[in-house]
């Protein structure tokens, strides 16, 4: 048997544990990133110019700087200020801050395409700003943003591999460990690529089904 395959069998429990951690991180940050994105998007719509500027600064900062920098800043930088966080905590916080900024931007882009007369109609009917957001704006921008939001979930899945650099033992960390022990770097990283491709394919299929499920006449996204 190929020694690399043999190693995969030997390391199978660790690989499965790594895969589980990868999926856990992806699911958590996709949900928290979506919730955070909705909150940040809401703040972009408030009338307060100061709040608006802070929100824009937040989005610009997290879109304009690498995710790895945020993770390193929290994992290696914060301990110098006396704050120590676990790798998972840093990963969840770092990814959430980053993904929220991207998701907020996707939602804001979809918002620009909304018919503003609908929002005026909601005001004319007597809806509060928060009700208009919840009942009129959000259901529409979410539908219009589904392709971007699902692409972000795929991006999240791939980006989880960065977390191994802060000692988070995800799938990529386990593969890295196998590669370091047997020096079959090409086979190891090719295996990692194939596993990520398989996972992404599953997410893509699920996303397409979801898109069809929530599609309405006038909201076809493809």
């Amino acid at each position: 048997m190929d020694p690399f395959i043999n190693d995969l069998i030997v390391y199978w429990p660790q690989l499965l544990a790594g895969l589980e951690r990868t999926l856990i991180l992806m699911v958590i940050v996709s949900l928290t990133g979506l919730a955070g994105g909705v909150c940040v998007f809401y703040l972009t719509l408030v009338k307060s110019s100061i709040l608006h500027k802070w929100t824009e600064a937040y989005i610009s900062f997290f879109i304009g700087t690498p995710l790895l920098v945020h993770l390193f800043l929290m994992y290696y930088g914060l301990p110098q200020l006396g704050i120590r966080l676990s790798a998972l905590t840093v990963a969840v916080i770092g990814f959430t801050l980053n993904v929220s900024a991207y998701n907020a931007r996707y939602l804001a882009t979809a918002y620009n395409g909304l018919d503003k007369e609908e929002l005026e109609a909601a005001r004319a009917q007597g809806f509060k700003h928060s009700e208009t957001f919840r009942l009129i704006i959000l259901p529409q921008v979410m539908r219009l943003s589904v392709p971007s939001l699902t692409n972000q979930v795929i991006q999240n899945l791939k980006d989880t591999s960065v977390a191994f650099l802060i000692q988070y033992h995800d799938l990529f960390a386990q593969i890295q460990e196998i590669a370091s022990s047997n020096f079959h770097f090409f086979k190891a990283y090719m295996t990692a690529a194939l596993v990520y491709l398989a996972l992404v394919s599953i997410v893509v299929l699920a996303a397409r089904r979801f898109e069809r499920f929530i599609s309405l006449p006038g909201f076809e996204t493809h």
Partner: peptide, 29 residues
């Protein structure tokens, strides 16, 4: 908002909430 609730408004370009059915448009308010 109370005043607006007592005044019906019909717009030039209809301004129906396009993610809702006709009945849902009417019942939402």
């Amino acid at each position: 908002r109370k005043v607006r609730g007592e005044i019906g408004f019909v717009f030039q370009h209809f301004a129906l909430y396009r993610h809702l059915t006709v009945e849902e448009n009417v019942t939402l308010g």
